[in-house]
């Protein structure tokens, strides 16, 4: 780990001011990913601005439930409003990592988790995300956990967050403060696809800080869930995950929210599947057709072709589970 300076911010304005000091300043949340990346030499900040002391409230606002970025994962998953109105989010969080990590990790940090691609972590490997222009050892290497949607020749990594997948389904809005003021970005636009610049993972500009995530009201949010498919029964990253909420009226899908994890460089909002489902009968056949529509452009790599069928099946199973009573 390279040496660094450390500051503890008392407010977001304070944090943003402190972060101006050097080009290699990083904000520090729970540290569950950043500290590991620093040890691995993947992240080499020269200054850390600790933002865990900032406001950690969860409060209703006219725009929805506002969650401060410093809220710990456990606190968010335990919040009665979240559990009642957005159960898919509570379930996504507790499906992730371990209880210890959830006690440490913040909402802001969770969104900024970096990929688990083995070649990203290994400084002996070629990785465009770690060293732009270096090449990608994953494209022809072990890529069982890698992306089937939205990847590029430069990068086939996936985003590892569970929480963010549920938030993508919920039309969450990310509030960002920076030297030039504050702005709101839909979570579905917050993370980027890799394209030719996989090192740029979000729309955050230098010095910008996530300060909150707002969950707009979702009338049918209570009928929602998150299903995570993985290589062991707990404490493993998703191979495929599905976040879904569905509103069935008279046997027809009136509205639906669907997002996939483990398949792309970002939490993958399944807009195509949603469009294919709205107004359709809530049947296994419609669910399968919607899943097919979403995965139509999926591209398998050497080891991850199974994810295409797995994602389709999991989408169908989740929708069947949610509509089981309604259908």
């Amino acid at each position: 780990m390279t040496p660094f300076a450390y500051d503890r911010a008392g407010s977001s304005a304070d944090a943003i001011r402190l972060a101006q000091a050097t080009a290699a300043t990083h904000y520090l949340g729970g540290g569950t990913n950043l500290v590991d990346l620093m040890r691995e030499g993947v992240a080499t900040p020269d200054r850390l601005v600790d933002v865990t002391g900032l406001s950690a409230a969860i409060e209703p606002t006219p725009d929805g439930l506002r969650i401060d970025a410093a809220v710990r994962n456990t606190a968010l998953a335990s919040d009665p409003r979240v559990r009642r109105d957005y159960p898919l989010l509570a379930r996504a969080i507790v499906a992730g990592a371990s209880a210890q990590i959830r006690n440490m990790a913040t909402v802001g940090g969770n969104l900024l988790q970096r990929t688990r691609c083995a070649y990203f972590y290994d400084d002996a490997a070629a990785c465009n995300k770690r060293v732009p222009g270096a090449g990608c050892d994953a494209v022809d290497g072990f890529n069982r956990i890698h992306a089937i949607l939205g990847a590029s020749p430069a990068c086939v990594a996936t985003h590892p967050s569970d929480m963010a997948v549920a938030m993508a389904a919920l039309n969450a809005v990310v509030t960002i403060d920076g030297p030039d003021g504050s702005r709101d970005v839909p979570l579905t636009d917050f993370h980027r696809l890799p394209g030719g610049t996989p090192e740029i993972e979000t729309v955050l500009a230098r010095g910008e800080l996530i300060t909150a995530v707002t969950l707009p009201p979702l009338g049918f949010g209570a009928r929602s869930t998150y299903r995570k498919v993985r290589d062991r029964a707990s404490y493993a990253f998703a191979l495929v995950s599905v976040a879904a909420a569905v509103d069935v009226q008279g046997g027809t899908v009136a509205d639906v929210r669907l997002a996939l994890g483990g398949v792309a460089h970002k939490p993958w909002r399944a807009f195509a599947a949603e469009a294919a489902l709205r107004g359709q009968p809530a049947t296994a056949a419609s669910f399968r057709a919607a899943a097919e529509a979403e995965l139509a452009d999926a591209v398998p790599l050497r080891d991850n072709g199974f994810k295409i069928e797995l994602a389709k099946r999991t989408i169908v199973a989740v929708l069947e589970e949610l509509t089981g009573e309604a259908a």
Binding site: A118, Y119, D137, R232, S234
Partner: peptide, 25 residues
């Protein structure tokens, strides 16, 4: 232990990526 035959290097040298059974298994 995933052994990358191009480099002879183990690519998952960690307990996060080399899975051993957890309580739930």
């Amino acid at each position: 232990a995933q052994f990358d035959e191009r480099s002879g290097r183990i690519v998952n040298p960690s307990l996060a990526e080399y899975h051993v059974p957890v309580h739930m298994d």
